[in-house]
Design a binder for these strands. Structure first.
Lengths: 233, 233
DNA sequence: CGAATAGTTGACGGACTTCAAATCTTGTGG
DNA sequence: CCACAAGATTTGAAGTCCGTCAACTATTCG
């Protein structure tokens, strides 16, 4: 919790810097300018695995799927980057993942070189970067635990519960899923059919409600948490 | 690969510092002295989840299982720390895992405060720490991918292949497993019975040979790699 | 030597995947 | 605005894989 607290403070500080140039969303592409805002349409890529790292990104709206593709065509989505989250923080020289927008997505772009300069000037941001990297490792381990120890229901329940906490801080009971069932399956190591079935099961159990396919209402947060909860945190 | 290279250089530099005080293994416990060498017997703990971080450790021989325990009693081994690998690098204030020696294990201990001082004096070691943390995140993601996308055979094959590369750099074809079947199961999200069955299967397929339960000989490295290989790197 | 721990193997059942078909949603052109 | 097409989702049926329970064997330590 202490680490998370410091992280948020520094995120705010950094986001402040990033927001200086162009605070208002504008459709279209404005690349290679400090803190440019860019629209990535659904299914478009922001970058590919192996690309040289050029920018640090902050997701403003929508969602990015950070994934790796296997030789046999399957893919694993390592994580979804949601509004307020950062991508490409750290000292890697090339991207370890591909980044695809799962829905229309706005991102703020900060050139990596500028980010490095900021980091050098402000030692506090070094701590922030360290915290970000530690958080990333922890998130990856949470995923490994969820997938290694949980059944399909626990994985889906855990995923929805975590997602709702991230997205719906303001409205904890209802939110829009920013990705398809197939995306969720590729994240949790399940088929899209199994994801759909577990959604249906949660609906039958009166734990969630689904409206127009993408709108999820959490009816029983406590039970949802219990179903996947042992495996997170 | 570039990152790994820099990492190794800095590991050597840091290991050099750590080795200055007491270069020769000595049985028994010598705690709270710079670079003290300590023996942790099989099934003993080096620290527990939640303990305040006191030392950075380097495994000299044996192996540590870094795990978290779930409320229901199951455990997930996030990773095994093998000879030459470091544990507790980073800025966490308390341990996120418990560390148990799976076999008799020697570790070098460097007080965390001293490690911080070294890091401040030598900016290069900051890069090394960053590389370590990035490596940890990558290892966790590899685990998540292996567990999410692989069947039992792929998981075990991938695990053995990776382990042999880490342990048996000198003798790539034969090495001693430093953990039980149950430990491997807790790492890969399988039961110990399934792990045993997959070992037997690999033996029937003439991919590996097993001598005296813990000694593994890799008969067909190429095929072993192919069996779990799509899921790693 | 004997007990305790670790590992192997078999049988069975349940959980998830695969294949298939039907329904719902969304975007586009007329 | 409507119709249609493409994509996403839901649901069903059958098969495979892995977990559970159980019995047995091998190894280690006192």
């Amino acid at each position: 919790m202490q680490a998370t607290h410091g992280l948020e403070e520094n995120m705010i500080a950094m986001a402040g810097r990033m927001a200086l140039v162009r605070p208002i969303p504008e459709p279209g592409i404005i690349e290679h300018r400090p803190s440019a805002l860019r629209l990535v349409k659904a299914k478009e890529h922001l970058f590919h695995e192996g690309d040289p790292r050029q920018c640090v990104f902050e997701v403003v709206s929508g969602a990015l799927a950070l994934y790796t593709l296997l030789p046999d065509g399957r893919r694993q989505i390592a994580r979804f980057a949601l509004p307020g989250e950062f991508v490409c923080v750290g000292w890697e020289r090339s991207e370890p993942h591909s980044a695809e927008a799962t829905v229309d997505t706005f991102v703020k772009c900060l050139p990596a070189l500028l980010a490095r300069r900021i980091a050098k000037d402000a030692p506090a941001s070094l701590d922030w970067i360290g915290a970000q990297m530690a958080e990333e490792a922890r998130a990856m381990q949470d995923l490994a635990r969820l997938v290694a120890l949980g059944g399909a229901l626990e994985r889906v329940a855990g995923f929805i519960g975590r997602l709702s906490r991230k997205i719906g801080a303001a409205s904890p009971c209802s939110f829009a899923l920013p990705m398809t069932r197939a995306d969720i399956g590729d994240h949790l190591g399940l088929t899209l059919e199994t994801v759909s079935r577990e959604f249906s099961r949660l609906r039958r159990l009166r734990v969630i409600e689904i409206e127009r396919v993408t709108q999820v209402v959490i009816l029983d947060p406590a039970r949802l948490r219990r179903m996947g909860g042992d495996l997170l945190n």
